[in-house]
C-alpha cells in the first residue's frame, strides 16, 4: 500500500466507526431457558445451583434461577448457519469484508470485557444493540500489521432493563505469507513442546555453544597477553590480538546481579525464572540462570556453583545452584 492508498483506505475505514451492527436491536432466537443453561453448565463443569437447581434457587435470596452471566452473548449468537453457509451480513461483516479486500485477512479476538447490571431470568428475551465503537490507528504487533476494532453491545430484556454491556476487541491484520506449519498435523493429542530461544551460532561464537553442548563452559583467552574474555569475540580488548585459545571454567561463582522475569512469560521457559550475572572464579562474568532456590532467597553476593544441564529437548545450558554455606 502506498501512502496515498493507505490514506484513502483509512479515510473510508474510519467512516465505519459508530455504525450499528443491526438495523434495530436483535432479539435472541430463544428466550433464556433451562435446557441451554444446563447444556452450558455441564460442558463448563459449572455446578453453581443458581443456574441449574430450581429447588435451591427457590429458597435462595433471588427466589428463582438465573442465567450464567457469562452466557450473556451466547443467547444472541448466530446458529448453525455460520458453519453451513457462513456468517450472515451485518454492520460488522461489512467492515470485515472491507478489511479482507485490502489484505487485512487475519483475525484475532484479543479482549472481551463484560459488565453486568441485572441478572437474566428464565423466560427473558435478550435484545442486542451493537455498534462499531472504535477502530485504532494502524499498529504493528507480533502477528503483523493491522488495526484493532472494538464493538460495543448492550443487552436489554423485554422490559427494556439493561442486563449488561460487552466490549469485544479484534485485531485485523495482514497475515504472514504462509501460515506456520502445524506442529503435528492430524495427530491431535501430540503437541510439539517449545524449547528455549537459541542463540544463532556464527564463526565467532559457535565454538562456545558447541563446547556447551558437550557439557563444558569455556572462557576465551588471548594468546598474546593471556587476558580472559567473555562473551566470545574476535579480538582482545587489551592488546588487539586476534590469536586466542580457551580455558574451561570450574563454574565456581558469585551472584553479581539478578532479575526475576515475570512478564511476558515465554513458552519453553520454566518459572520462576531468575536471570543472573555471575562473577566466575576465573574473573569473567557470565549471564545464566539461578535454580534450585526460592526466588525470594536469591541475594547479590551469594556463592553459586554451575552445572551444564539439558534444560529442554534441544538445549544445553549452564545452570547455577546455591552453594550450601
Amino acid at each position: 500500500m502506498t501512502p496515498e492508498e493507505r490514506q484513502a483506505f483509512e479515510e473510508e475505514l474510519y467512516t465505519f466507526v459508530g455504525r450499528p451492527l443491526h438495523p434495530e436491536p436483535k432479539r435472541s432466537y430463544d428466550a433464556v431457558n433451562e435446557a441451554m443453561i444446563r447444556h452450558w453448565a455441564e460442558v463448563m463443569g459449572d455446578k453453581n445451583p443458581a443456574y441449574t437447581n430450581a429447588e435451591w434457587a427457590a429458597s435462595s435470596r433471588r427466589g428463582e434461577l438465573i442465567a450464567p452471566p457469562a452466557m450473556m452473548y451466547a443467547w444472541n449468537q448466530e446458529g448453525y448457519a455460520v458453519a453451513a453457509e457462513g456468517r450472515p451480513s451485518d454492520g460488522l461483516s461489512d467492515l470485515v469484508a472491507y478489511f479482507d479486500q485490502h489484505g487485512f485477512t487475519g483475525s484475532l479476538g484479543t479482549n472481551v470485557d463484560q459488565e453486568f447490571f441485572a441478572e437474566a431470568k428464565i423466560g427473558d428475551a435478550l435484545f442486542e444493540d451493537a455498534i462499531i465503537e472504535e477502530i485504532s490507528e494502524q499498529k504493528v504487533t507480533a502477528r503483523g500489521r493491522g488495526y484493532f476494532l472494538q464493538t460495543l453491545a448492550k443487552f436489554t430484556n423485554q422490559s427494556g432493563e439493561l442486563i449488561g454491556t460487552q466490549r469485544f476487541r479484534v485485531f485485523k491484520f495482514i497475515p504472514p505469507e504462509a501460515p506456520p506449519k502445524a506442529a503435528a498435523s492430524g495427530a491431535s493429542e501430540e503437541l510439539e513442546v517449545p524449547t528455549r530461544i537459541h542463540a544463532p551460532r556464527g564463526q565467532d561464537n559457535g565454538w562456545w555453544w558447541d563446547a556447551c553442548d558437550e557439557g563444558k563452559v569455556l572462557i576465551q583467552r588471548c594468546k598474546n597477553c593471556q587476558t580472559l574474555r567473555h562473551p566470545p569475540r574476535p579480538m582482545c580488548g587489551e592488546c588487539q590480538s586476534t590469536d586466542w585459545d580457551s580455558v574451561q571454567s570450574t563454574l565456581d561463582g558469585e551472584i553479581f546481579s539478578f532479575v526475576e522475569m515475570h512478564y511476558p512469560k515465554f513458552p519453553g521457559y520454566k518459572y520462576p525464572l531468575i536471570v543472573a550475572v555471575i562473577s566466575l572464579a576465573e574473573g569473567t562474568r557470565i549471564i545464566s540462570n539461578v535454580v534450585g532456590i526460592d526466588s525470594q532467597d536469591v541475594k547479590i553476593g551469594m556463592k553459586v556453583k554451575g552445572k551444564v544441564e539439558q534444560v529442554d529437548e534441544k538445549t544445553m545450558l549452564p545452570q547455577f545452584y546455591p552453594v550450601e554455606a
Binding site: 463443569g45 443458581a50 435462595s60 450464567p68 457469562a70 479482549n111 472481551v112 459488565e115
Partner: peptide, 30 residues
C-alpha cells in the same frame, strides 16, 4: 473459543465465591 475461556474464568471465581454472589464484571484478555 473465547466464550468458553470466559465461562471457565467465571466459573473459577463463582466456585470460590458461592452461588449467592452476583457477578458484576468479567474481563478477559486472550
Amino acid at each position: 473459543n473465547i466464550l468458553t475461556s470466559q465461562a471457565l474464568m467465571a466459573r473459577f471465581v463463582t466456585d470460590w465465591s458461592g452461588p449467592e454472589a452476583v457477578m458484576k464484571a468479567l474481563k478477559v484478555k486472550l
